[in-house]
Every structure is written in structure tokens, then in C-alpha cells.
Design a protein around this nucleic acid. Structure first.
Length: 669
RNA sequence: GCGCCCGUAGCUCAGCUGGAUAGAGCGCUUGCCUCCGGAGCAAGAGGCCGCAGGUUCGAAUCCUGCCGGGCGUACCA
């Protein structure tokens, strides 16, 4: 019989159910039975401190209650024993053979769920190369996607392209006015394999931004003209804008492709404008009084959303007479400017409504993205969409992977849904926030960045595209590949350079993705090359190495046993029973059976770092086992079979956990 | 000013809905390659968990107040 869902979770549920039923019968008390995984193996496989809370209700010593429970609770399937311990804990020990049989027999099944989830991530302005901050976004977003899919969810991945905003305008202005280059010239640059177009734009963007920063009147005039031309949507400059944005988007897709990140659809702002998504949203907002026209004050002439909508009720400061303090900031949020144009949040509200299928009658057209190696990715078009395009949007739940600095705007978007009466969708709008990636002082020094007086006093320096301050994603990846290549080379003189490079690329991706995932979302990463390039200790390559070792044993065993079945046979319960009395083997099996369980918890808590942590612990447990236990030359055939089964489990589990994190599993390294 | 986040070992970070002796990695000191690959394994030193109160049988975890740091609070995106 195959257990449904993680075996560990099953036992956890059974224990909780059995105890709470018994407590209810025996003591007529209702308490929540919480369970935990004991840190010390002596404390069993699963423990509960339930007697402590029970002690209060029953006015009885916890230790005594624990003793009674242990003696009186009827047997629980899969659990060998219960014992009272410490000041009143109840510790459960599993039936090891049964547990191991379930776990060793293969991956656990997951229930498919039909509700659709949209995950929006990456969202890089298409005007310059991606940097390390964007890598964190993409890795987090892509891991969330893999995690949800591994749990049976239906996920659609969107990467929003803001191809008509000021950031693109700046680079377009630079090409047009600073370089005198038009659409054709830029097309040539983009097609030239000898140059990295997005890297070129990185410098160009920094160059023209310096003019803006210096309040160069001519440059500011260029910017206004360019933005206007982009918004009108036709003419030479608009064409140039489209060329630049499309070319850079292609560069971004290529960069993300390197780390195993792909998208289902690229909704573009140009289509949101052309298809007038905003006007539909605007009508809704007006109809339902979610926004109002401001007649006075600093926002006079604007359509605004009242601050009360997204900031809870105004309580304090109510006693102050209005207007007493003229400097009091107006907390209301402008949605439509006094000149009639819509702000970014406004467009975002329209986009969010579309994601939930709430923009009646409005949808994009779609065509396959004409980008090398991006098969399966669709891009929005205003007309002439492909008839066989899948249907996008219309989700039940939406994750927006955006850094924490955008919390305020995300609150406004959610408040808009609420004000429109879409309360369920507002609740299902999840801002999957994460802290920024900044540059450590040492990193700045290595990049030769001169720090200002005030910056020198800071613990880290914010990345800035405008200032050209940052580490480009491709540069970091190249450096990782080169470093890994040298390592591989030094270990495998027999391999061809091309093969070494392939392995190095896998290691680079593993190192990078693990680096981004090992810290929790609300930890600021002060980027440091030395840490990012580390391949020892708690790093991606450490995990990969553990999997490689497990794979090696299985391969050698298969070769030695005359090409016998790779899958191997499940040892009979009696031999599992006998050999899992070895505490260290049992602990290993336990540790190696937690990937689904950890995935469920990571999804529930929204913390991908838990995946990383669990995977690392599993790799550690295996490395220890590997070092202390000889498997292939084990003389007792029965024990050898059990050991091999455990190695197969370890290999499968490590590979599984790594794949959820998007880390490649090399066959050698 | 207001809002959100952070403060745990020399450094970088974990610590699940409060639970048993606060954990990793790096760095440091010391062992381990006739044996499935040393990107490894093992041991050691290193902690008023920012400070002070409170709640609780029990607090790194919850509450309050301080101190220190970050981010946000645009008719920019």
C-alpha cells in the first residue's frame, strides 16, 4: 500500500488524531496536539509537549499525564512505541521497517489541484543588462514555481515587460541624441554576436543618467520628447524604442535561460496601453467609488485613492484641526495625474485585475516569442494574435515576486481590488517580497567603485542601474563558470575541455541558485564575490557533490553486478527491521525522507530557504554516511542490499530537492 | 513624524504554530587519503540570542518601552 503524501506527515497526522481523540475521551479536554521533530535522536522520531498544556486544565503534573497517555493510548498504525520523557514529553518511535518500506519504494504521490496560480517574476526594465538583484528575484520566483508545481499546483509564469516607461526612454534618447543611431543601426548592434547589447546599454544608460543627474537641460528635453514619442506609439523614435526593448528582453531571456528559468508569457506594457486595459479599470474604479476626483490641495485635479483604503483606519492625529500643520503629508495615492495620464500603480491595478480575469471582455493577443531558445514562451500582441495560443490569465491566486521596497505599491493594488468588491481576489494577491541585494564594501572596492563620504559609513551600498553601480548577472555567471572550470579541470585531466565546461556550467548554476536561496527572504544580501564563488561548506556544489557520490556508488554497483537493474530491489521488511536497528542508519533514512514534507512546509510558510536548509542537512547526513560506511565492499549481502537501497533513496531525494531549487544534478564533477 | 523589516559565535546566516543541552558554514587550532572521488570526514576553542521590563510551567521566539541599523512613505517606475 502506497502512502498518500509524505509518510512523515501521515504519521504526524495519525499521532495528533490518536492523541487528541484519546484526550477528549479520557479527560474530556480539547487541546491542540502540536508535534515537533526532536533535535536529539534519543527523544524519538516525533514528540509532543501536549501534556504541559493539559496539566493546566487537569491540575495534574505533566509527567503523570504523559505516563497515563503512554499506558492508555491504543496502538497507532506505523508507530512502534510511545514513551514519557523529560518533564512531561510524549515521544513516539516509528515502526522502522514499515516506514522504510514506504519511503524506499519510491517517490510519494501528490494530489493534483485544479486551481490556477499565476507567479509573476523577473520583471526587469528592458533597458540594460540584468544584475544580481534581478537574479535573486528570478531564482526566488522560479523556485516558487517549481515548488508549487511539485505540490501538484497548476502554475502560469509571467514576466512583465515595461517596454514603454522612462527607463527605456532614457536609453532610446541616448541612442538617438547622444549617438545619432536609429532603429536600423541599433538592430545591427543587437544582431552582432561580438557585442553584448544589454551590456552596451548598461553603460549608455549610466552615461545619459549622469547628464540628468547634472540637470543638463538639453538632456532633460530629450527625455521628455522621447517619452512622448514612445507613448504615441508611432514614428521613428517609437520604432527605435521597440527595437531596444525587444533586443534587451531577448538578452534577459538568454541570461535567465542560463540558470534554468523560463516563462509562459510575457505581458507587455505596450499592449496594456494599446488595448486600453486601463480605461476599463478606470471605469470600474470610478463606478464603485474606489477613487475620487480631488478638487483641492496638492493633489488638485488628480484622481486619487484615499489613504484609508490601504492604511487601515485613521485614528491618531484625528484630534488635530485640519490644516493646522501645512506640512502634513497628503497620504492619498494619486492614480491619474492632473494632466490625465495614468501612474504606474494604475496600470498595475489593471494588470492585476486581468490576472484574475476581472477585466470583462479584455484580453491580449498572443504570439510565440521570437527569441532563440525560448520555445514555449508567448508574448502579448495588440492584434493578429495566434489562434492556437493557450489561454492566459484568469487565476485563482497570484504571487507577485517583487522586492520589499515595493510593498507600498502592492498594498495600493490590493486595496484597489478590495475597494472594487473583489475581496477574495484581494486576499489571493500575494506580494512575495524579498529584501534587496546590495554590494558589500569589499565588493565595491574590488569593482573599483569610489564611494562618497556618506556611502562609506554604510554597511552596504545599494545597486543602482542609473549609476551603473552593480554586478551584471552574466559577468557573475561567467566568473562562476570560469572558477568551476578550473576546479573540474584539475580533477579530470581525462575529460575534454568542452565537457569540463559543461560540468562547470552546471556547478555555476548550482552555486548561484543555492547562494540566493540559503538566506531567508527578508535578509538583505550584501553581495560579496568571495562568498558567492565559494564551492565548499554550505554551498550548491556541496549538495551536488553528495548527489554525485551517491550516483557513483550506484553506477559502480550496476557495473559490477553485470549491468543488473538500476532500480534495485526493495529489501524485505525483516532485513530492514534488522539493519535499521543501527541508529545511525535509521537517522539517515529519516533525514532522507523529508523532502516532500519540507516542500509542504516551505510552501505553507512561503520560505524557499527552508528547502535549501533541508537539502543541505540531507547532503550532510549522506556525506557523513558515505565517509563512515563502505557499501560496495560490504560482506554481509543482506546488509549490503539495505545500504544500497538507502543510497538509492539518498540519490533520489537529493536530486529531487535540488530540482525543486532549480539546481542541476551533474553525473560527475 | 508615520509604516514595515533587521539586531543570535570573530564573519555570513539558520532557529518551524513559544518547548528538552541555542545550531550550521566560513575563519582559527588539531587529526583523517594501501579503502565507493578530500568540492570530503572528525574533534576543539568561540554565545549576558542589542538593552530593560512583562506574560508563561517554559521565551532567541509573544507583548511593552528604549538603543542601534536598513527600507518605504512621488502627479518616478
Amino acid at each position: 500500500m502506497r502512502a498518500f503524501g509524505p509518510m512523515l506527515l501521515t504519521l504526524e497526522n495519525r499521532l495528533q488524531a490518536a492523541l487528541s481523540a484519546h484526550i477528549s475521551d479520557r479527560y474530556a479536554a480539547q487541546v491542540e496536539v502540536v508535534t515537533e521533530l526532536p533535535r536529539q535522536p534519543e527523544h524519538g522520531d516525533l514528540a509532543t509537549p501536549v501534556c504541559f498544556s493539559l496539566a493546566k486544565v487537569l491540575r495534574k503534573a505533566p509527567r503523570q499525564i504523559a505516563a497515563e497517555l503512554v499506558a492508555e493510548v491504543p496502538p497507532i498504525e506505523g508507530i512502534r512505541s510511545l514513551e514519557a520523557a523529560g518533564a512531561g514529553y510524549v515521544n513516539a518511535r516509528f515502526d522502522r521497517a514499515a516506514y522504510a518500506s514506504a519511503v524506499l519504494s519510491g517517490p510519494e504521490a501528490v494530489a493534483a489541484r485544479t486551481a490556477k496560480v499565476i507567479v509573476e517574476h523577473t520583471n526587469i526594465n528592458p533597458n540594460k543588462a540584468a544584475h544580481i538583484g534581478h537574479l535573486r528575484n528570478a531564482v526566488l520566483g522560479d523556485t516558487l514555481v517549481r515548488l508549487l508545481r511539485s505540490l501538484g499546483r497548476t502554475v502560469e509564469v509571467q514576466n512583465y515587460i515595461d517596454n514603454t516607461g522612462v527607463q527605456v526612454a532614457d536609453v532610446v534618447a541616448a541612442f538617438h541624441y547622444l549617438r545619432n543611431q536609429g532603429a536600423d543601426a541599433v538592430r545591427g548592434l543587437a544582431a552582432d554576436p561580438g557585442i553584448r547589447f544589454d551590456h552596451l546599454c548598461w553603460d549608455l544608460y549610466a552615461e545619459i543618467s549622469r547628464l540628468f543627474a547634472a540637470k543638463d537641460q538639453q538632456a532633460i528635453a530629450w527625455r521628455a520628447e522621447t517619452l512622448h514619442a514612445l507613448e504615441s506609439g508611432d514614428g521613428e523614435i517609437a520604432e527605435l524604442g521597440a527595437v531596444v526593448a525587444d533586443a534587451i528582453t531577448a538578452c534577459h531571456l538568454a541570461t535567465m535561460r542560463r540558470i534554468g528559468v523560463a516563462y509562459d508569457v510575457l505581458p507587455r506594457e505596450s499592449e496594456i496601453l494599446k488595448l486600453r486595459f486601463w480605461s476599463a479599470a478606470f471605469e470600474l474604479l470610478k463606478q464603485r467609488d474606489a477613487i475620487y476626483f480631488e478638487n483641492a490641495g496638492k493633489n488638485a485635479g488628480c484622481w486619487v485613492m484615499p489613504a484609508t483604503a490601504f492604511r487601515g483606519s485613521p485614528d491618531a492625529s484625528q484630534g488635530e484641526p485640519a490644516g493646522a500643520d501645512e506640512e502634513a503629508p497628503d497620504a492619498d495615492k494619486v492614480i491619474v495625474r492632473s494632466n490625465g495620464t495614468v501612474t504606474y500603480v494604475g496600470k498595475d491595478i489593471a494588470y492585476q485585475l486581468w490576472k484574475f480575469g476581472l477585466l470583462a471582455g479584455k484580453d491580449f493577443g498572443y504570439k510565440p516569442a521570437q527569441v532563440p531558445l525560448a520555445e514555449g514562451t508567448w508574448v502579448t500582441v495588440a492584434d493578429g494574435g495566434s489562434a492556437d495560443a493557450p489561454s492566459f490569465g484568469g487565476a485563482d491566486e497570484v504571487y507577485n515576486v517583487i522586492d520589499v521596497r515595493q510593498s507600498y505599491l502592492q498594498d495600493v493594488v490590493r486595496a484597489a481590488l478590495e475597494a472594487l468588491g473583489f475581496e477574495q481576489q484581494a486576499r489571493a494577491s500575494i506580494h512575495f517580497a524579498y529584501e534587496m541585494v546590495a554590494l558589500s564594501p569589499r565588493c565595491c572596492a574590488q569593482l573599483g567603485i569610489e564611494l562618497s563620504e556618506t556611502d562609506r559609513t554604510k554597511p552596504y551600498i545599494e545597486v543602482s542601474g542609473r549609476k551603473g553601480l552593480g554586478v551584471k548577472a552574466d559577468d557573475l555567471l561567467d566568473l562562476l563558470v570560469d572558477t568551476a572550470f578550473d576546479e573540474v579541470r584539475s580533477r579530470h585531466s581525462e575529460l575534454a575541455a568542452a565537457e569540463c565546461r559543461e560540468i562547470a556550467a552546471q556547478i555555476a548554476v548550482g552555486a548561484l541558485r543555492y547562494f540566493m536561496l540559503r538566506v531567508t527572504r527578508n535578509t538583505v544580501i550584501a553581495f560579496d564575490f568571495q562568498e558567492a564563488l565559494a564551492f565548499e561548506g554550505e554551498t550548491g556544489p556541496y549538495l551536488q557533490y553528495a548527489a554525485v557520490r551517491a550516483g557513483n556508488i550506484l553506477r559502480k554497483h550496476a557495473a559490477a553486478s553485470g549491468g543488473g537493474s538500476e532500480s534495485g530491489e526493495l529489501p524485505p521488511p525483516v532485513s530492514l527491521q534488522r539493519h535499521l536497528e543501527d541508529e545511525s542508519l535509521w537517522q539517515l533514512v529519516l533525514k532522507m525522507s523529508m523532502s516532500r514534507w519540507a516542500a509542504a512546509r516551505a510552501a505553507e510558510s512561503g520560505e524557499p530557504a527552508q528547502l535549501a536548509r533541508n537539502a543541505f542537512q540531507a547532503a550532510q547526513a549522506f556525506s557523513n554516511f558515505y565517509h563512515h560506511t563502505h557499501i560496495l565492499n560490504e560482506e554481509d549481502p543482506e546488509r549490503k542490499a539495505v545500504l544500497l537501497a538507502i543510497v538509492r533513496l539518498a540519490h533520489r531525494e537529493l536530486a529531487d530537492q535540488m530540482s525543486v531549487m532549480g539546481m542541476p544534478v551533474p553525473t560527475r564533477m
